[in-house]
Design a protein around this nucleic acid. Structure first.
Lengths: 157, 157
DNA sequence: TTGCTGAGTCTGTCAATCAGACCTAGCCTG
DNA sequence: CAGGCTAGGTCTGATTGACAGACTCAGCAA
């Protein structure tokens, strides 16, 4: 009856580490902006209402974590400025964002539906996220997924 | 050159709403515990090191949001207590957790690998998360996914 | 009666968030 | 050249949240 998980340490848990990067109140919203093509400080600020200070901190943290990079650009008749773009590490957060979006759409959307969808560039069809096992089986019921200790698991002291 | 997203409001964005539930520092860690079968207050506290007060608040918030429910149980020789279990709404967060885990494993794991994997109950094979479009195409490069306004999109004032 | 246990509450400290005002470098206009 | 505009910030003070550690409380057991 005692859950098996209690025997395993969580000190090197990658979910916890990922949430150290993604888990702050506005991080995902910033990423949503960048994925949507909004790359400049003020555009983000106006759209999202994130306080300047917080946006500054979030962007700096994401750059430091290697999720975004600062890219110089110059609008004609303006001085040199910087915009924020996704690195490969940042691009690989797409599935996370799509998963969050999927859940949000299902449980938290207004009656008229989600304000945002994602499409496949080639065919234009809507992209959804799915779980599949290495044998190729589609996993539709979340109850069919079970957690197990992985290669890096350590027993608890 | 001006990003198209700027014309659209974000006030009803489901990512932001989802992150209001999931976005606090410990929420995902609590969910990881519950998905791993750890359902009791003190077990979670000992494993995760979350301060009592914070854990109390997080659990209450998740119950209020309908992600967890409080279930009475009674260990023989003990008085009646409560444990926390996933609702259907909570179970549907599996894909989010698997997506976060996948990203964390890729970029933040120790050299000996992830401490946690997820397996398909029927065949035991490892479960991964993938993007696929409605036409059935596998989406492997995140660059092939493009965001678009959805049915609930509203133009900005 | 005393002690133990699980699940909390209370208290005080320290860090983060927030709103709003202020700053700054370069460009443009008069 | 003075003054104004703009993007991208800093600075300041009030509120909220995280955290550690001590205390509480109900029921069971010795």
């Amino acid at each position: 009856m005692r859950p098996a998980a209690l025997d395993w340490s969580v000190e090197n848990c990658t979910i916890a580490r990922a949430m150290e990067v993604l888990g702050e109140r506005w991080t995902m919203v910033v990423l949503r902006e960048v994925f949507s093509g909004v790359r400049r400080f003020d555009d983000m600020r106006v759209r999202t209402g994130i306080p300047r200070q917080v946006l500054t901190n979030r962007l700096a943290m994401l750059v430091e974590q290697g999720v975004l990079r600062r890219e110089p650009y110059r609008e004609p008749g303006s001085r040199l400025r910087h915009e924020y773009r996704l690195t490969d590490k940042g691009l690989d957060l797409w599935p996370v964002l799509v998963a969050v979006l999927g859940w949000g759409d299902r449980y938290l959307a207004d009656p008229d539906g989600s304000p945002l969808t994602v499409a496949h560039r080639d065919c234009g069809a809507e992209v959804r996220m799915g779980l599949r096992c290495a044998e190729g089986h589609e996993v539709t019921d979340p109850r069919d997924v079970v957690p197990r200790p992985g290669p890096g698991a350590r027993r608890r002291a």
